[in-house]
Protein backbone atom coordinates (compact mmCIF):
# COMPACT_ATOMS: atom_id res chain seq x y z
CA UNK A 1 0.00 0.00 0.00
CA UNK A 2 1.70 3.18 -1.16
CA UNK A 3 0.07 6.45 -0.29
CA UNK A 4 -0.28 8.79 -3.23
CA UNK A 5 -1.58 11.62 -1.06
CA UNK A 6 -0.58 12.11 2.56
CA UNK A 7 -2.24 14.78 4.65
CA UNK A 8 -0.82 15.31 8.10
CA UNK A 9 -1.79 17.68 10.88
CA UNK A 10 -3.69 19.96 8.55
CA UNK A 11 -5.33 22.97 10.19
CA UNK A 12 -7.26 25.93 8.87
CA UNK A 13 -9.04 28.55 10.91
CA UNK A 14 -11.53 31.13 9.61
CA UNK A 15 -12.01 33.72 12.30
CA UNK A 16 -13.07 31.70 15.34
CA UNK A 17 -14.05 28.61 13.41
CA UNK A 18 -11.66 25.72 13.04
CA UNK A 19 -12.71 24.53 9.59
CA UNK A 20 -9.99 21.92 9.38
CA UNK A 21 -8.95 20.51 12.75
CA UNK A 22 -5.77 18.46 12.68
CA UNK A 23 -6.70 16.29 9.74
CA UNK A 24 -4.55 13.24 8.99
CA UNK A 25 -5.47 11.28 5.92
CA UNK A 26 -3.83 8.89 3.46
CA UNK A 27 -5.12 8.22 0.01
CA UNK A 28 -3.69 4.96 -1.28
CA UNK A 29 -2.81 4.41 -4.91
CA UNK A 30 -5.70 2.92 -6.83
CA UNK A 31 -8.38 3.34 -4.19
CA UNK A 32 -11.56 5.30 -4.23
CA UNK A 33 -11.52 7.16 -0.95
CA UNK A 34 -14.70 8.95 0.03
CA UNK A 35 -15.05 11.80 2.49
CA UNK A 36 -18.47 12.20 4.00
CA UNK A 37 -19.81 14.50 6.65
CA UNK A 38 -22.74 16.73 7.46
CA UNK A 39 -23.06 20.21 5.98
CA UNK A 40 -20.45 22.55 7.36
CA UNK A 41 -18.13 19.73 8.32
CA UNK A 42 -15.31 21.38 6.35
CA UNK A 43 -15.29 19.20 3.24
CA UNK A 44 -15.10 22.12 0.82
CA UNK A 45 -12.34 23.77 2.82
CA UNK A 46 -10.38 20.53 2.71
CA UNK A 47 -10.76 20.20 -1.05
CA UNK A 48 -9.76 23.85 -1.45
CA UNK A 49 -6.56 23.23 0.51
CA UNK A 50 -5.78 20.16 -1.54
CA UNK A 51 -6.26 21.95 -4.84
CA UNK A 52 -4.38 25.03 -3.68
CA UNK A 53 -7.01 27.75 -3.53
CA UNK A 54 -6.85 27.97 0.28
CA UNK A 55 -3.55 27.97 2.17
CA UNK A 56 -3.56 25.90 5.39
CA UNK A 57 -2.44 27.45 8.67
CA UNK A 58 -0.55 24.37 9.79
CA UNK A 59 0.28 20.85 8.68
CA UNK A 60 1.39 19.42 5.37
CA UNK A 61 0.09 17.91 2.17
CA UNK A 62 2.33 15.48 0.32
CA UNK A 63 1.81 14.15 -3.15
CA UNK A 64 3.93 11.08 -3.88
CA UNK A 65 6.23 12.17 -1.09
CA UNK A 66 6.64 15.71 -2.39
CA UNK A 67 5.51 18.55 -0.16
CA UNK A 68 2.88 20.57 -2.03
CA UNK A 69 1.38 22.41 0.97
CA UNK A 70 2.22 25.83 -0.39
CA UNK A 71 2.47 25.00 -4.09
CA UNK A 72 0.48 27.26 -6.46
CA UNK A 73 -2.80 25.78 -7.67
CA UNK A 74 -1.70 25.51 -11.28
CA UNK A 75 1.47 23.66 -10.32
CA UNK A 76 -0.44 20.99 -8.41
CA UNK A 77 -2.40 20.24 -11.52
CA UNK A 78 0.88 19.69 -13.34
CA UNK A 79 2.04 17.37 -10.59
CA UNK A 80 -0.96 15.16 -11.15
CA UNK A 81 -3.90 16.39 -9.09
CA UNK A 82 -7.07 17.39 -10.89
CA UNK A 83 -10.37 18.45 -9.46
CA UNK A 84 -13.97 18.63 -10.48
CA UNK A 85 -16.04 21.44 -9.06
CA UNK A 86 -19.05 21.18 -6.81
CA UNK A 87 -20.67 24.01 -8.68
CA UNK A 88 -20.26 23.24 -12.35
CA UNK A 89 -17.24 25.15 -13.55
CA UNK A 90 -16.82 25.03 -17.29
CA UNK A 91 -15.87 27.53 -19.96
CA UNK A 92 -19.43 28.24 -21.00
CA UNK A 93 -18.83 30.30 -24.15
CA UNK A 94 -16.78 27.47 -25.67
CA UNK A 95 -17.93 24.28 -27.31
CA UNK A 96 -17.98 21.02 -25.39
CA UNK A 97 -14.97 19.57 -27.18
CA UNK A 98 -12.96 22.79 -26.76
CA UNK A 99 -13.41 22.46 -23.01
CA UNK A 100 -12.05 18.94 -23.01
CA UNK A 101 -9.32 19.79 -25.54
CA UNK A 102 -8.01 22.45 -23.15
CA UNK A 103 -7.49 19.70 -20.58
CA UNK A 104 -5.64 17.51 -23.10
CA UNK A 105 -3.58 20.50 -24.19
CA UNK A 106 -2.66 21.24 -20.57
CA UNK A 107 -0.64 18.03 -20.46
CA UNK A 108 1.74 19.28 -23.14
CA UNK A 109 3.55 21.38 -20.57
CA UNK A 110 2.97 24.90 -21.80
CA UNK A 111 0.74 26.31 -24.48
CA UNK A 112 2.74 29.31 -25.62
CA UNK A 113 2.11 28.15 -29.15
CA UNK A 114 0.70 30.98 -31.15
CA UNK A 115 0.72 29.82 -34.74
CA UNK A 116 -1.00 26.53 -35.48
CA UNK A 117 -4.78 26.59 -35.22
CA UNK A 118 -5.63 24.63 -32.09
CA UNK A 119 -8.66 22.99 -33.64
CA UNK A 120 -6.61 21.54 -36.48
CA UNK A 121 -4.40 19.44 -34.21
CA UNK A 122 -5.99 16.03 -34.63
CA UNK A 123 -4.01 14.40 -31.82
CA UNK A 124 -5.66 16.72 -29.32
CA UNK A 125 -9.08 16.69 -30.92
CA UNK A 126 -9.19 12.91 -31.15
CA UNK A 127 -8.21 12.38 -27.58
CA UNK A 128 -10.76 14.95 -26.42
CA UNK A 129 -13.39 13.16 -28.46
CA UNK A 130 -12.36 9.82 -26.97
CA UNK A 131 -12.77 11.21 -23.46
CA UNK A 132 -16.18 12.56 -24.34
CA UNK A 133 -17.10 9.15 -25.73
CA UNK A 134 -16.02 7.61 -22.44
CA UNK A 135 -18.64 9.62 -20.57
CA UNK A 136 -21.18 9.24 -23.36
CA UNK A 137 -21.11 12.78 -24.71
CA UNK A 138 -19.42 12.21 -28.07
CA UNK A 139 -22.41 13.28 -30.08
CA UNK A 140 -22.58 16.56 -28.16
CA UNK A 141 -18.94 17.46 -28.92
CA UNK A 142 -19.60 20.47 -31.13
CA UNK A 143 -22.49 21.91 -29.14
CA UNK A 144 -21.95 25.12 -27.22
CA UNK A 145 -21.42 24.21 -23.57
CA UNK A 146 -24.16 26.53 -22.34
CA UNK A 147 -26.96 24.59 -24.01
CA UNK A 148 -26.15 21.28 -22.30
CA UNK A 149 -28.23 20.07 -19.38
CA UNK A 150 -26.97 20.08 -15.81
CA UNK A 151 -26.47 16.33 -15.93
CA UNK A 152 -24.40 16.65 -19.08
CA UNK A 153 -22.32 19.38 -17.47
CA UNK A 154 -21.52 17.03 -14.60
CA UNK A 155 -20.40 14.41 -17.11
CA UNK A 156 -18.26 17.00 -18.86
CA UNK A 157 -16.53 17.68 -15.54
CA UNK A 158 -15.60 14.00 -15.43
CA UNK A 159 -14.44 13.96 -19.05
CA UNK A 160 -12.20 16.94 -18.31
CA UNK A 161 -10.77 15.27 -15.20
CA UNK A 162 -10.04 12.21 -17.32
CA UNK A 163 -8.50 14.20 -20.14
CA UNK A 164 -6.18 16.00 -17.74
CA UNK A 165 -4.48 12.64 -17.23
CA UNK A 166 -4.05 13.26 -13.53
CA UNK A 167 -3.35 10.25 -11.36
CA UNK A 168 -5.37 11.69 -8.50
CA UNK A 169 -8.87 12.99 -9.14
CA UNK A 170 -10.53 15.16 -6.50
CA UNK A 171 -14.22 14.87 -7.21
CA UNK A 172 -16.25 17.47 -5.34
CA UNK A 173 -19.83 16.22 -5.15
CA UNK A 174 -20.15 14.87 -8.69
CA UNK A 175 -23.75 13.83 -7.97
CA UNK A 176 -24.85 17.32 -6.90
CA UNK A 177 -28.19 18.19 -8.43
CA UNK A 178 -28.57 15.01 -10.46
CA UNK A 179 -31.86 13.16 -10.82
CA UNK A 180 -32.13 9.41 -10.07
CA UNK A 181 -31.43 8.25 -13.65
CA UNK A 182 -28.51 10.62 -14.06
CA UNK A 183 -27.12 9.60 -10.68
CA UNK A 184 -27.22 5.96 -11.67
CA UNK A 185 -25.38 6.80 -14.88
CA UNK A 186 -22.75 8.73 -12.93
CA UNK A 187 -22.23 5.92 -10.40
CA UNK A 188 -21.86 3.43 -13.22
CA UNK A 189 -19.34 5.71 -14.94
CA UNK A 190 -17.30 6.28 -11.79
CA UNK A 191 -17.21 2.62 -10.90
CA UNK A 192 -15.71 1.94 -14.33
CA UNK A 193 -13.14 4.71 -13.83
CA UNK A 194 -12.01 3.75 -10.39
CA UNK A 195 -10.11 0.76 -11.65
CA UNK A 196 -7.73 3.05 -13.53
CA UNK A 197 -7.52 6.09 -11.25
CA UNK A 198 -7.09 7.11 -7.68
CA UNK A 199 -10.14 9.05 -6.59
CA UNK A 200 -10.81 11.24 -3.59
CA UNK A 201 -14.56 11.60 -3.57
CA UNK A 202 -16.50 14.14 -1.54
CA UNK A 203 -20.14 13.28 -1.73
CA UNK A 204 -23.48 13.66 0.00
CA UNK A 205 -25.26 10.86 -1.81
CA UNK A 206 -24.77 7.94 0.59
CA UNK A 207 -25.94 5.29 -1.87
CA UNK A 208 -23.29 6.44 -4.30
CA UNK A 209 -20.61 6.59 -1.63
CA UNK A 210 -21.27 3.09 -0.35
CA UNK A 211 -21.44 1.76 -3.90
CA UNK A 212 -18.14 3.33 -4.98
CA UNK A 213 -15.81 3.79 -2.05
CA UNK A 214 -13.09 1.36 -1.01
CA UNK A 215 -12.54 3.39 2.13
CA UNK A 216 -14.51 6.15 3.79
CA UNK A 217 -13.41 8.93 6.11
CA UNK A 218 -15.96 10.78 8.16
CA UNK A 219 -15.41 14.48 8.71
CA UNK A 220 -17.32 16.22 11.51
CA UNK A 221 -16.62 19.78 12.67
CA UNK A 222 -13.34 19.77 10.77
CA UNK A 223 -12.11 16.56 12.41
CA UNK A 224 -11.84 13.09 10.98
CA UNK A 225 -13.68 10.92 13.47
CA UNK A 226 -13.30 7.63 11.63
CA UNK A 227 -11.70 6.02 8.61
CA UNK A 228 -12.48 2.52 7.38
CA UNK A 229 -14.14 0.27 4.86
CA UNK A 230 -17.80 0.94 4.10
CA UNK A 231 -18.77 -1.93 6.44
CA UNK A 232 -16.65 -0.61 9.27
CA UNK A 233 -18.12 2.86 8.86
CA UNK A 234 -21.66 1.47 8.81
CA UNK A 235 -20.95 -0.31 12.07
CA UNK A 236 -19.12 2.55 13.79
CA UNK A 237 -21.14 3.79 16.74
CA UNK A 238 -19.54 7.21 16.88
CA UNK A 239 -20.30 7.79 13.21
CA UNK A 240 -23.89 6.67 13.63
CA UNK A 241 -24.26 9.03 16.54
CA UNK A 242 -22.51 12.03 15.05
CA UNK A 243 -23.61 11.78 11.52
CA UNK A 244 -25.96 9.13 10.29
CA UNK A 245 -28.12 9.61 13.39
CA UNK A 246 -28.66 13.21 12.52
CA UNK A 247 -30.21 12.51 9.19
Amino acid sequence: MTAILTISGLEKRFGGVLATDHVDLDVVKGECHAIIGPNGAGKSTLIAQLSGTVVPDRGSIRLNGRDITREAAYKRARLGVTRSFQITSLVMPMSVIDNVALAVQAREGHSFKLVRPARSISRIRQEALARLAEVGLAERADAPTVILSHGEHRLMEIAIALASGAELMLLDEPMAGLGPTESARMVELLSRLKSTRTILLVEHDMDAVFALADRISVLVYGRIIATGTPDEIRGNAEVRHAYLGEE
Binding site: K75, R76, F85, L90, V91, P93, A103, I160, S164
Partner: peptide, 16 residues
Protein backbone atom coordinates in the same frame (compact mmCIF):
# COMPACT_ATOMS: atom_id res chain seq x y z
CA UNK B 1 -10.22 32.60 -24.00
CA UNK B 2 -10.59 29.79 -21.52
CA UNK B 3 -9.20 32.05 -18.79
CA UNK B 4 -11.71 34.71 -19.77
CA UNK B 5 -14.56 32.23 -19.55
CA UNK B 6 -13.45 30.48 -16.38
CA UNK B 7 -10.12 31.29 -14.81
CA UNK B 8 -10.48 28.83 -11.91
CA UNK B 9 -11.00 25.97 -14.29
CA UNK B 10 -7.93 26.88 -16.31
CA UNK B 11 -5.80 27.11 -13.17
CA UNK B 12 -7.06 23.74 -11.96
CA UNK B 13 -6.01 22.29 -15.31
CA UNK B 14 -2.49 23.48 -14.68
CA UNK B 15 -2.35 26.70 -16.68
CA UNK B 16 -0.53 29.62 -15.13
Amino acid sequence: QGAKGNNDRMVSLGYN
